[in-house]
Every structure is written in C-alpha cells, then in structure tokens.
Design a protein around this nucleic acid. Structure first.
Lengths: 147, 147
DNA sequence: ATTTACTCTATTAAACTGATAGAGTAAATA
DNA sequence: TATTTACTCTATCAGTTTAATAGAGTAAAT
C-alpha cells in the first residue's frame, strides 16, 4: 500500500515539475495547493532533497525546486525513498535484498518465484513512469479551458 | 509488503495441497513442518476456514484439509483474506473500492492511473496462480531423489 | 468418561504511520 | 549589520497494525 507520505511526495513533485526552470516554490504554497499538513510536508521534501530529487534555496525568494528534469525522476525512485523497497518480499528486492528468515531454500521457494514476478512488473511500471509522464496524464484544467 | 500472516498461510496451504484428498493434517504438524508459531497458525487457519478455503474435523483423527481442489485456490484470494486488498491505493481496488479523501478529481488523477496499472498486473499474476501451480514450482525433494 | 484437537476472545510488546512542536541555521535585503 | 524569510533538524505523540501468546471453551472420537 502506498503511504500518505509517498502520495504527498508525488503530488508535490508533480506541482514542482510544472514549475521546472521557473521560480522556487514555498513549502507553504505547496502545502496549501495540495492540502498537505505543512510540517509533515517539510519532512518529506527534506528527505527528497537528501536523495538529490530536490534542491532548495533559503531566505527570501527561496523555496524548493526540482534537482533534475521531470523526465529523469521516476515514480519508483520516489516511492522507494519514502516507503522503502517496492518488492512484496525482502528476498526479491533488487535495491534492498535481504534473505527472509523463514525461507529454508530460496531457490525452490515457489512463493518467492511468484513474488519475483510481482516485483518485476511493479518495478517495470513505476520505474518506467517519470514525473513528465505524470504531468501529461493530468493536463492543467486552466490550460484546457483556454483552448 | 506481504505480511508474515499471509506468507504462513500460503506455506500451510501448499502443505495441505500436497495432502489433498488424504488425511486431515494437525495444526501442530503444520506448525512444526513450516516453523510457524502454533497459536498464531491457529488464527490463520481459522480465518481461512471462515472464508471457505479450508475445512476441519475435530477430535481424534481430526485436523485441517483443503475445502476445494488446489487448482481452485488462487494466491490472490488467500492474500486478500489475510492482508486485505492487493491494490496499492484504495481507489483502485476492485474488491474493496474506496474513494481516497485527498483526491480532488479521481478521473484526472495521474497517480491513480499508474497505480491502477500496478494493481491490474499484480492481481493478474496473483489471481492467475493457484496452489496447484505453487506445488509444481516446488517439487518435493524426496520425490526428486526417487527419480 | 476421557482424550484429542479445533474454536474463540483477550491481551501484549514492538513497530509503523501520520502528524505536530519548537528551536536552530542560512541567505537575502533594507 | 540588523532583520526578515524560509528552510533544517530533533523530538515527541496518539493511533493503528503486526506478530505473537494465553487460556478457557466446545465438538467429536474412542
């Protein structure tokens, strides 16, 4: 299940993607637009910054902005930062592999084999979808009205 | 993430699938074979019984056994019973749909669109894999040795 | 009647989730 | 350089979920 943290992160990033190469956006601005508790959003953005997804500028005229182009930021990457590995079992994670304690023989564990498929298809979708893709999936309402 | 509960359930069911149409298996037998805390397993099996996956017989010579053939029990079904819906967001669940509070317009929510794909591919795999399939993926070691 | 073995309700500790509070620090500008 | 702005960091918290345990109760076989 996607946590609220990860969902908030994606919402905020989509907003920031729209303003890419424009001015930094205030946390409070983002919080208001997406109805996210401001203090909670702070933690999320800070985390994204630590992972190089975002950059920030302090003081007046400051705020947050994308650290790389929207095409270069995948949903999978964002979700992993906030929620941890995509894999439904630690033993099928590519980015955070861990042997699961109860498994006696990983090679013949049938549950693992199926979960491997699940993780691959999930990762395929989420790593194959960038912020740029997400932006295109939701055209701005205002832009539509202007047509 | 698959919970231990669901994983234990699948392990136990695979064992019971091997004994399909043979004798009932004791909880304690299953617990020992799969190294599952017995009392914990009791709750799991009871839950599976309430959902028609298992049947049981009390008293001496009793135990648990599959309520339907292994081909008729899908992984997805089992996981839903123990862990709830497969969908990564309540708003894309087929079996337990719920509007997510923060979403202002479900139809244009791009996060939702992608998560819909994730849920469909996950459900496709898990509902398409039965206990019979799982059994075949893990040939009994003893059987192998006898070849 | 007694043993066997499933059934049910309650309780627990630890971890996780979503959220809040407040002090601290860096950068802009007047 | 004083002040304002706005990000940075640490701590805390209530509520829920997860994994597990305990113990009394009930049905069925011998």
């Amino acid at each position: 299940m996607l946590s609220k943290k990860a969902k908030y992160a994606l919402q905020a990033l989509i907003q920031l993607a729209r303003e890419y190469k424009q001015n930094p956006v205030l946390i409070s601005e983002l919080a208001q637009r997406e109805r996210i508790p401001k203090k909670f959003l702070e933690l999320i953005l800070l985390d994204l910054k630590r992972h190089g997804i975002l950059q920030s500028k302090k003081g007046k005229g400051g705020g947050y902005f994308l650290g790389k182009p929207p095409e270069a930021i995948a949903m999978g990457q964002v979700i992993r930062i906030l929620d941890g590995p995509l894999a439904p079992l630690p033993c099928v994670s590519q980015t955070a592999y861990m042997k699961c304690q109860e498994c006696r023989d990983e090679k013949t564990c049938s549950i693992r084999m199926v979960m491997q498929q699940v993780r691959d298809s999930t990762a395929g979708i989420l790593d194959g979808t960038s912020l740029a893709d997400l932006m295109q999936l939701t055209p701005k309402k205002t832009a539509r009205k202007r047509l």
